[in-house]
Nucleic acid binder design. Structure first.
Length: 189
DNA sequence: TGCCTGATGTTCT
DNA sequence: GAACATCAGGCAC
C-alpha cells in the first residue's frame, strides 16, 4: 500500500490532497522543484472538463489510470498540466494551477522570459513553462523521470481554501478550486 | 490599479 | 469555423 492510492479517490478529494505535494522536474538536464499550492478538480460529470464529452484522442489520458500526467494545449500558446486521478475508465483529473518554487528558481526565471518572484509560477500555463512541461509529457507516469510527484503529508483542513474555479465559462459556479491559505503564489485569492 | 486586447494553434462540431 | 481550463503588455483612470 502506498500513498499514491489517494489519487484513486474522486477528483475533489485528490485536488485537496495534492496541495502541499512536491513536483520535481529534471527536464532538459536542469533540476527544478516546487510545491503545489493551487489545484482545480475536473471530472466527466462536469461541463467544464475536457472529459465531459467522452473519450477522444485528446482526453484519452484522463480516462487512464491515476498518477499519469495530462497535458493540454490552450489558447494557441500555452500548456497546462493535470494529474490524472480516480478509477481507470472514469475521466477525472486535477489541474495544477500554481506551485511555490523550492529549487532552481534561476532556471525557472530563464524559461519565463526573465520574470521573477510570484510571476514565475502563479498560473497554470506559467507553472508548465517553469517546469518545462509540454505536450511531449502527455501521458507521462509521475513516478518516473523526468517529472516526479512526491506525495507529502496531508495539510490541515484549516489551511485549505475552497472557492469557485477561475478562467472557465462552463460550470463556473462549481466550487472545485483549492489553494493553500495565505500562499503568495496562488494565482488569485 | 484594473480593464481590454492581441497573439496563437489544437480540438471538436 | 468557432471555442478555448491563458498570459502579458498597453492604455485609461
Amino acid at each position: 500500500m502506498d500513498s499514491w492510492k489517494l489519487l484513486e479517490s474522486d477528483s475533489v478529494t485528490a485536488a485537496k490532497r495534492l496541495l502541499g505535494c512536491e513536483l520535481t522536474s529534471t527536464i532538459g538536464g536542469q533540476t527544478v522543484r516546487g510545491r503545489i499550492v493551487e489545484t482545480e478538480a475536473y471530472d466527466q460529470t462536469d461541463a467544464a472538463s475536457h472529459s465531459s464529452h467522452g473519450r477522444t484522442s485528446r482526453t484519452e489520458v484522463m480516462f487512464g489510470p491515476a498518477g499519469h500526467l495530462y497535458v493540454y494545449f490552450t489558447y494557441g500558446m500555452y500548456y497546462c498540466c493535470n494529474v490524472v486521478v480516480g478509477q481507470e475508465g472514469y475521466g477525472s483529473a486535477v489541474l495544477i494551477r500554481a506551485i511555490e518554487p523550492l529549487e532552481g528558481e534561476a532556471v525557472m526565471s530563464l524559461r519565463r522570459r526573465g520574470l521573477t518572484g510570484v510571476q514565475l509560477t502563479n498560473g497554470p500555463a506559467k507553472t508548465c513553462q517553469a517546469l518545462a512541461v509540454d505536450k511531449q509529457l502527455n501521458g507521462h507516469m509521475l513516478r518516473e523521470q523526468p517529472l516526479i510527484l512526491k506525495v507529502c503529508d496531508p495539510l490541515l483542513e484549516s489551511e485549505i481554501v475552497q472557492t469557485v474555479r477561475v478562467g472557465i465559462t462552463k460550470a463556473a459556479d462549481t466550487p472545485w478550486r483549492f489553494y493553500i491559505r495565505g500562499n503568495k503564489y496562488v494565482s488569485r485569492s
